[in-house]
């Protein structure tokens, strides 16, 4: 990292940016701090995510964008030493409230991971897994319907329709990732979190996924962590820039990439560090 970058002592208030009034706020984050043991990973994050939009989280590695993403469906609960404070609301509901059930939360806030991680099961069972455990289908027909529509939605159905009983791990990397997206869609989440979903894929598979994300926007709110600024520019309407655990700047994707307010954002998007 370039040492010329001046790191402000005080976090800049990223909330100078206001979402347009007409947009419904799906995920609201207020003063979120995350500690891993002694180390603080996130500082006072404030962010509003509008429904049915794609929001990109960008920033150099280790900046906290993945950590933030994992707060939104409480994946940090799995890590013993992680401690989250502050308030995160999903449709006005505090997700860290003790009455909130993580199982339900994670069904409503789905996740797609950096590395495709299909279960060692058949393609069908991979997609059917979520609906099965949550009891989303009343009978076999309904379940099959969910699987088929999810696969269609993920743009994978035509490629695998003749081998739904084959193992999901036998697919190519891009197909595996779309299978994971189908798997996430199948639980009918409201929000889908994507943690660099295309970083392990080749350019063609990446293009397919990006197209898919744009389509999914109609039904889902999507928050995506990405390493690639071009990708963020292509697929998202809003972009948030993280740096050293601070949310430095949020804005219209176009504005962030053309006319960033903060010096650090500017340095980052012009490739001076990161």
């Amino acid at each position: 990292m370039n040492m010329n970058v001046e790191t402000p002592k005080e976090p800049v208030d990223a909330m100078t940016f206001q979402l347009p009034e007409e947009l419904q706020v799906k995920v609201k984050t207020r003063d979120v701090n995350v500690h891993y043991g002694e180390k603080q990973a996130l500082f006072d994050i404030n962010l509003d995510v509008p429904a049915n939009h794609v929001v990109s989280l960008i920033g150099p590695s280790g900046c906290g964008k993945s950590t933030y993403l994992r707060c939104l469906n409480r994946m940090n609960d799995i890590i013993d030493i992680a401690r989250v404070s502050g308030k995160i609301e999903l449709d006005g509901l505090d997700i860290y409230d003790k009455n909130i059930d993580v199982v339900e939360l994670r069904a409503r806030v789905g996740m797609v991971f950096q590395k495709p991680n299909p279960f060692p099961k058949s393609i069908f069972d991979n997609v059917a897994y979520g609906p099965r455990i949550h009891g989303l289908a009343d009978n076999k027909t309904e379940l099959e319907e969910i699987v088929v529509t999810s696969l269609q939605k993920a743009g994978l159905f035509d490629e695998v329709k003749d081998r739904l009983k084959d193992s999901g791990t036998g697919l190519s990397g891009g197909q595996q990732q779309r299978l994971c997206i189908a798997r996430a869609i199948a639980t009918r989440p409201e929000v889908i979190l994507m943690d660099e979903p295309a970083s392990a894929l080749d350019p063609i598979a990446t293009a397919v996924i990006e197209e898919l994300i744009d389509e999914l926007r109609q039904n889902f709110t999507i928050i995506i962590v990405t390493h690639s600024m071009q990708q963020a520019a292509r697929i998202s309407q809003y972009t948030a820039f993280f740096h050293l655990g601070y949310l430095v700047e949020v804005g219209d994707t176009e504005q962030i990439f053309t006319n960033p307010v903060d010096r650090r954002t500017q340095d980052y998007i012009t490739g001076r560090f990161g």
Binding site: N73, A107, N117, R183
Partner: peptide
């Protein structure tokens, strides 16, 4: 990643263990 995949879908611990980890 498999573990996280299951948790990310909202599986409980026992579901993760029995459906994903043990197989």
């Amino acid at each position: 990643s498999l573990r996280e995949g299951a948790y990310g879908l909202g599986a409980t611990k026992s579901e993760t263990i029995i459906d994903v980890l043990l197989p």
